[in-house]
Design a protein around this nucleic acid. Sequence first.
DNA 1: TCCATAATTTGTATTTATTACAATGTTGAA
DNA 2: TTCAACATTGTAATAAATACAAATTATGGA
Lengths: 139, 139
Amino acid sequence: MKRENLVYSEEIKEILLKKGIAPSFQRIKIYEYLISHRVHPSAERVYIDLVGFIPTLSRTTVHSTLNLFADKGMARRLFIDGNLVRFDIDSSDHMHFKCTKCGEVYDILKSSPKVTSPEHKVLSGEMYLYGICKKCKEE
Amino acid sequence: MKRENLVYSEEIKEILLKKGIAPSFQRIKIYEYLISHRVHPSAERVYIDLVGFIPTLSRTTVHSTLNLFADKGMARRLFIDGNLVRFDIDSSDHMHFKCTKCGEVYDILKSSPKVTSPEHKVLSGEMYLYGICKKCKEE
DNA sequence: TCCATAATTTGTATTTATTACAATGTTGAA
DNA sequence: TTCAACATTGTAATAAATACAAATTATGGA
Ligand SMILES: [Mn+2]
Ligand SMILES: [Mn+2]
Ligand SMILES: [Zn+2]
Ligand SMILES: [Zn+2]
């Protein structure tokens, strides 16, 4: 393994420890994957891509790790698709756009509109946009 | 059947015909259900509630009918939950709020924020809000 | 170091939502 | 009435996610 990656892993260890998460090999690799593949992957996508590199990896670990990250506020669950959950390691305030032609999910780097309700206590919100992406338009 | 319901069904027939949909008994009943149960039900919810009334009803019919309504612009698919699709017969411009305690999905009767993108062609958008509903707050 | 315990991962089974598809049933125009 | 197109049904298949117990690994005190 390259020194770069080792340093990378050391930094990730710190991040996980600060959140009270034991920095296991699998968790570090999943975190690293999310950091370097910013396409809002599903659990299955993470699994498929990492299992080539970690042959003993199980889907259960991927799911439980992604849910752990989300519950600790280190990742965001995106319900932009109907029947699968995507994950975003970038929990900063931004929106998402899904191309209905190619299926890709892009960041819209503006803060999400703030909506309040006179009756309910609104704690969070997600704005999902749909349409045709730049790449698909040009074809 | 009460005369009221017959009139209701007649009106629904007109609505379906105008959209080019054959007004079968099942479709009319599913439409009627959506009109009179405005809680953004899932396909399973619609099926469970209607199968007592229409014993031969199949899940496939419910799914295909709801998808037909959505594709014809007569209903909206809501991805406010992670792994199930809810349907909303009200396709007017409004937002949705889900109570994370009781799970209920409420309407927020304001028009959804309009977001554009300099690169992508945005065709539609959905704003989902999460928090604690009025009822749960009061307990 | 060694051991006991806790934490984590794994693999399998299960659950749940949805779709695929062929067989059956229904309807309306000729 | 007949027939072809359309709609519904039931079963099987697919797919995402979870439940759970067994196996593995890490940790901390003797
Ligand atoms: Mn993002
Ligand atoms: Mn609504
Ligand atoms: Zn595209
Ligand atoms: Zn509530």
